[in-house]
Write a protein that binds this DNA or RNA. Sequence first.
DNA 1: CTTAAGTTTGCATTCCCGTT
DNA 2: AACGGGAATGCAAACTTAAG
Length: 402
Amino acid sequence: MNKEILNYAIEQGIIDLSHIQDVVNMNKRKEILEQHPYSIWESKDGKWHTYLPDKEKGRVPRKRNSKKDIENLIVDYYKEQVGHSFKDWWEKWEEKQVRYGVSNNTLLKYNSDYVRFFKDGPFESMDIRAVTEEDITEVMVKCVKKYDLKEKGAKALFGYIRGVFKHARIKKEINENPCEYVEPRAFLRFCNQSLPLLDDRVIPPDEVEILLKVIKEDQQKNPSYIPLYAVELAFYTGMRVGELTGLMWSNIREDLGCIMIQYSEKLDRKEKKYYIAKTKTGKERLFPLTDDIKRILNEVKKQELKNGYFNEFVFSGENGKIHFGAIADCLRYRCEKAGIRRRTIHDIRRTVNSEMRTSGVSSVVAASLLGHTEKVNRKNYTYDLSSIEKKKEIISNLYKAM
DNA sequence: CTTAAGTTTGCATTCCCGTT
DNA sequence: AACGGGAATGCAAACTTAAG
């Protein structure tokens, strides 16, 4: 509401501030009663009943003469907890994280994870001073089972809880951190242990062939649809999707015979704004300008000039530079069209690397081309794509040199 | 480990084209 | 010109994974 209108209404006595206070209190009361997990009922003798949470017994019965009295009891109980609940300390921890400078994207993730794991759950209203390592283990086991969490997910969730308790410990709300007594084994053993299949990570050669064919066909049919060229370029460079949309014409260094992969387009999900920043590792890298890449870039430039899309960014459409969603979606629809399972730009990245590695390129060179460390290259990007014939050849030659 | 980039999912919106 | 159905494309929240 407009501030002047509000002030005017108060001055004129149209709005009475004391009434507003009443409304706030009523709402707060209503809110407290709504989140109370136990029902409120009247017994035959006209008495009113409910339970209140209890850290030892779990819950304790309570009885009063009227509904109003029992509600007052509940409201008072929860008011007592104010400032001490897990929820309150989560908020304090989050505020601290903001002060320490976490990004908006991370903040948004914290919030969505809170809703997912804690909202309306038993943990959020618990008095943090009374939470024991058993309570935490119990919550962890419940969440692991409920959400079928993998080990990483479970560890991330535990990381949140530990962070909140650590903060509470530093602020002297609690004397020791119960998380220190939690045995991760107790919940990790319920984690989903399944590993991703090879086909989930890399695109097999026959599907690469089909996709490139579909892309070619669509380029002929709809040559001004720029994302098609970006997907094609991904197949030749293994670039990250943000790097593709962050690519500028000034990065195409014909003089050096290479592409300077320097920027990455990112999205601030809170502000809903795209921005250009450094690549994920913060480093620039050079990628050779091959004939295929030159061909793609020339076609892009030609189409953009023809349609009036041309600007400083390599991949631009009628509304200016395109965003990574367009490239990801473009690939998705080409897959559907080709009748193969959905693939992502990152699948292409893994495929490009695995092709290099299975044909004998060292991790030093592959990692340098893709812009990550050798360790990351081995851990996340190297999959066996060699055919059984190739393996046969290798095994046949095993002792030839001796 | 924590931080944040990337992917998935499920619509919403726009485009296209044959039909009224 | 308006309609309508299906395909293509765009978008955002929810979820997974990469990488320091």
